[in-house]
């Protein structure tokens, strides 16, 4: 009896290990198939001309210059708007705010906001930024909409990073006579920095792939110029990709794959920066 129980226990343990292994590889294999397929389709189309030309009706002449530049502009602006706000709110909620009922409601709402579909943020941005604040379909309106979209993600993840800082470190700092701000600046933020950087990169990686909220806010598709100021009209890579994918001619699908490769490179590059910063800033206790 006891021996049989032992065998079943071991079998279950082994089975779970292989189940976990399967889950890990399933995700990786899907990603590999996707990337392989995109590279196979689009790599041949990638060229300097493709990156430095504007969109065109002729697939072989078309390029992504305005979409790429629009994406760079909007990512920089979104980051500038969302990062200080997100980290500031997280520090306040984690370090200053008292545990009141109101505080709990705020907390719950931020967690809920992180799960709202992006198109809803688009409608909000259209009403507030495009119409009420009369920004039109400008880069500024788009960046503010995306900043709103990723703020809750940054806040939630940054709070987790702050929570992970050992209580003993903070108390040691206070014991040495440091003020709250000195403690946050010199002890908490450096200790939490790798987690905060990860949260920012995850949030920005989400923003970079959004097309729907930007179309709602007024982003365009054919833009034969590079944006020169935050009030410029613009388009971004996901809109260009969406537009090419839905065209009947097969050659546009190849263009879409090539544009996806460029978008993936930007995301990988951003992640590489994050990994580098994480290694550099890692603090061991």
């Amino acid at each position: 009896m006891n021996k049989r129980y032992e065998t079943i226990k071991r079998a279950k343990d082994g089975a779970f290990k292989y189940f976990g292994l399967f889950c890990t590889f399933f995700g990786l294999i899907m990603l590999a198939i996707f990337i392989g397929n995109i590279l196979f389709e689009g790599l041949g189309r990638l060229s300097w001309d493709f990156i430095t030309s504007y969109s065109s009706r002729l697939p072989e002449k078309a390029g992504i210059l305005s979409a790429l530049m629009g994406t760079v502009w909007i990512m920089v602006m979104t980051a500038l708007l969302a990062i200080p706000g997100g980290i500031g709110a997280a520090i306040y909620l984690e370090m200053y705010a008292k545990r009141t009922r109101f505080g709990n409601i705020v907390e719950l709402n931020i967690a809920n906001l992180a799960g709202i579909p992006s198109i809803i943020y688009g409608l909000l941005g259209l009403e507030i930024f495009t119409y009420q604040l009369q920004m039109g379909g400008s880069l500024l309106a788009g960046a503010m909409t995306l900043a709103l979209l990723i703020l809750p993600i940054i806040i939630v993840a940054t709070r987790e990073a702050l929570k992970a800082v050992p209580r003993s470190l903070i108390e040691a700092s206070f014991a040495l006579g440091a003020t709250k701000w000195q403690t946050i600046r010199r002890t908490v933020l450096p200790a939490a920095s790798s987690g905060i950087i990860t949260s920012v990169i995850i949030a920005l990686s989400r923003a970079i792939g959004e097309a729907a909220p930007l179309i709602v806010v007024g982003a365009l598709a054919y833009v034969p110029f590079v944006p020169t100021s935050p009030t410029s009209d613009f388009t971004v890579l996901p809109i260009q990709i969406f537009n090419w994918v839905s065209r009947p001619q097969k050659a546009f699908l190849v263009n879409a794959s090539a544009a996806i490769i460029v978008l993936l490179c930007i995301v990988f590059f951003m992640n590489a920066i994050a990994v580098y910063l994480r290694i550099k800033k890692k603090i061991k206790y």
Partner: peptide
């Protein structure tokens, strides 16, 4: 069609700022 016309028009009148959206 509008993209194609805008593209050709721009070749003739490069200083006109053309934009086409798809909402």
């Amino acid at each position: 069609i509008s993209e194609a016309v805008a593209e050709e028009f721009r070749a003739e009148q490069p200083d006109v700022k053309m934009t086409v959206g798809l909402s």
